[in-house]
Computed example of a mutant assay.
Amino acid sequence: MSKASGIVLLVGLCLGAIVAMALVPPSRSGPAALAASRTAALTVETEPVPVESPPPSSSAPGPPSKTVDTQALQHLVPGGQVSVVVYDRTAKKNMVSLKPDRFHTSASLVKILIALEALQAGTSPSIVQRMLSASDDGIASSLWSAHGGPVIVTRWAARIGLGGTRPPEDPGRWGDTRITAADIAKVYRYLLDQAGAGTRKTIMRALSGATESGSDGIRQYFGIPDGVGTLPWSIKQGWACCRGSRVLHSSGVVGEEDRYIVVVLTSQPTSTTYAGAGKRVTDVVKALLPLIDGL
């Protein structure tokens, strides 16, 4: 082979190698090319995912809280005085307390204390129930005399812790016993939570079966019965006139499982009628309804 032919052959081999390298696919390239291809694969552009913003906080008010304007209750008894206590036995606290320590004449509310004493002494439950459900004054007077009169009040006031309860100045006038709304609420708490099962059953059966009219003919469904609609109730009412004022009281328990103790004591002008004064007591009870569940 001539020298010129050798040169031509060498040049041809070089050109062939260059062409071959150009035709090699990227997957067969060296490490640098492979790294570049992976980088390209990782940097493929995608559409950004929108992030949902949290909803703006609502400025709308929630449901109104259950409240009672206690000062407005006084205006429902014009020219008179009113004391109110509402005690929630589930929450174990007073929901309303308006002049709870003001003295009032008890009228027939003292019959609950007479009933406690009489039952403890062995009096027939049917007699006690009649005294309470029809608010029978004749039975009350008989039991009052038989069991010590004023000592009934002092004994049970000490036992229950009734700081504002006093026996009447005239020992024969049981209806003049001095009471407060706070003390009457305590009487119900004692009756429901501490009294013996037999005593509690006898008294509560009488209060839940209170007749529409008392033994003296006065309608006694003012206040709680007229005011709470279809809610269950048990009551002891009181009324008297006219030694300076017309007294009308509504007390008892309201709601399922006797949840609320409600006491409304009023002293009103003698110029009002029993019907008119009773309506005012009912208006006070109706004003308390926002506090009572289920209404």
Score class of each variant (00 low, 15 high):
residue 154 T to S: 15
residue 26 P to M: 15
residue 254 V to H: 05
residue 104 H to M: 15
residue 240 A to S: 13
residue 236 K to A: 03
residue 202 T to E: 11
residue 121 A to C: 02
residue 183 D to R: 00
residue 17 A to M: 08
residue 215 S to Q: 14
residue 159 R to T: 14
residue 107 A to L: 10
residue 101 D to P: 02
residue 114 I to R: 04
residue 253 V to S: 10
residue 125 P to Y: 08
residue 168 P to E: 02
residue 27 S to A: 15
residue 173 R to E: 12
residue 43 T to C: 01
residue 160 I to Y: 05
residue 31 P to R: 09
residue 92 K to W: 13
residue 9 L to F: 00
residue 157 A to F: 09
residue 106 S to T: 10
residue 199 T to Q: 13
residue 175 G to E: 03
residue 45 E to G: 14
residue 177 T to K: 10
residue 191 L to H: 01
residue 205 R to D: 15
residue 159 R to M: 00
residue 173 R to I: 14
residue 33 A to K: 12
residue 192 L to G: 05
residue 25 P to M: 03
residue 105 T to L: 07
residue 15 L to N: 12
residue 258 D to R: 05
residue 95 M to V: 12
residue 53 S to Y: 06
residue 208 S to R: 03
residue 89 R to H: 13
residue 40 A to W: 00
residue 129 Q to L: 12
residue 210 A to V: 02
residue 259 R to Q: 11
residue 166 R to N: 01
residue 5 S to H: 08
residue 86 V to M: 06
residue 147 H to E: 11
residue 196 G to H: 04
residue 228 V to I: 06
residue 159 R to V: 14
residue 52 E to M: 14
residue 188 Y to Q: 04
residue 54 P to I: 07
residue 44 V to K: 08
residue 197 A to F: 06
residue 19 V to I: 09
residue 44 V to H: 13
residue 264 V to F: 03
residue 206 A to E: 07
residue 139 I to P: 08
residue 221 Y to L: 03
residue 168 P to H: 03
residue 124 S to C: 03
residue 124 S to R: 06
residue 136 D to Q: 02
residue 103 F to M: 15
residue 180 T to W: 08
residue 285 V to S: 05
residue 217 G to S: 04
residue 238 G to C: 06
residue 92 K to E: 10
residue 218 I to H: 05
residue 129 Q to P: 10
residue 284 V to P: 00
residue 187 V to G: 00
